[in-house]
Design a protein around this nucleic acid. Sequence first.
DNA 1: GTCTATAGTGTGATAGAC
DNA 2: GTCTATCACACTATAGAC
Lengths: 230, 230
Amino acid sequence: MALRERILEVSREIVRREGFASLSMRKLAGAIDYSPAALYLHFRSRSEIARALSMEGHLRLREAFVAQASIAEPAARLHAMARAYVEFGLAEPQTYRLMFMEPAGSFEAATDGIDTNAPAVAEAADAGAAMLAPIADAFLELRSAGRLPPHAAPAACAEGLWASLHGVVALKLNGAAWPATPAETLVELLLEAWCKQADVRVGDKRNAGTKPRKAEPQGNSANRPDTSTR
Amino acid sequence: MALRERILEVSREIVRREGFASLSMRKLAGAIDYSPAALYLHFRSRSEIARALSMEGHLRLREAFVAQASIAEPAARLHAMARAYVEFGLAEPQTYRLMFMEPAGSFEAATDGIDTNAPAVAEAADAGAAMLAPIADAFLELRSAGRLPPHAAPAACAEGLWASLHGVVALKLNGAAWPATPAETLVELLLEAWCKQADVRVGDKRNAGTKPRKAEPQGNSANRPDTSTR
DNA sequence: GTCTATAGTGTGATAGAC
DNA sequence: GTCTATCACACTATAGAC
């Protein structure tokens, strides 16, 4: 029983270091000093391990978002969440790959049964919804405050911003020469474009910069609460 | 000699249909009715074929951009190029994957020699630069016209917009449930955000929509010149 | 230039003994 | 629960005959 946890633990480490592609059942078995066959007593297949690890990743990402929830000003909160997202992706490239850059069929093909397939898809959809919800909330607040055109659907905006951030991370992870612009700069540009209130930056390092038009009163919200969800 | 072309031709077709991952030397050899060994007389390795196909793709993408070059209004040109980009990605998912979603090491590892490695990287960088240049040009025009904040570097904006578009395409190609919003809608949102002149849509289908504030005179530029570069 | 044959290495998953 | 042994594949790339 503890073995299942141990398998996940070691898998997590291998994936983090070498990527899921290089996680083979043989290698994994060797790392936990068991025979390959033993793995199949706790996981139906290699892809099921992938799904488990992916879900773990989504959980961590969600926690990173929750840690920003106390920021009252919606644009600043969006900023913080966006930065957290990109930081997560760059800090754990292989986990991010597993979560967002694996072709859809990979996991579904694993659970071949029709019944067992459904929960997998639902699980993935839930993870997506849970990630997008706080972003959409922030957009909704922005729109309610008249800082966004009324025809901008919060859900669509959230997906659009997410896609943009994913683009930055994905290109950076590929390690090519392009884009040459640092990820942080790209994120700044992105958010400046998405919510046109770029001057509102609560409790951030470079607050003195450019044009400080409107200082937000709730500066205390910068003290992010500890990630005690864990 | 014609064999090299034939190899590329068949490879292109296989990749287009099944993706590069499923292009094996055996399968390829079978498809052209030669032995696997014959392939290595024209290509050093499988990855060299990948590079060739990727470059072909970049060429086609560039042509799609050139076809929009006659649109005088920079925001409208950006719109058109963005749409062309996403259309290309969605129309040729596997080629797009090969071009932008393959980890960087894939091709470089192929040409193992140190001398032969350099041109490969240069080639890739050239392709990136050639793709970004027209986008950056449009942003430069926008800024010169005072329609973009002066601190927005055109090159960075171009990379930012590219990353955003890539994010949309990449997520859509993965075939997951998210994002649920159609790609076209996301692109509209994206561009509305990036260049805040969303009402300028030259010669487009849904021109009558929303708020037609300023009709552009050069509607004739919508007739894209034939892609005769080929 | 092109072939046959094969080396060498990897993989996921399972049957059946203990 | 765990093992050994193995099935049944796939792959890139090369050696050497023609």
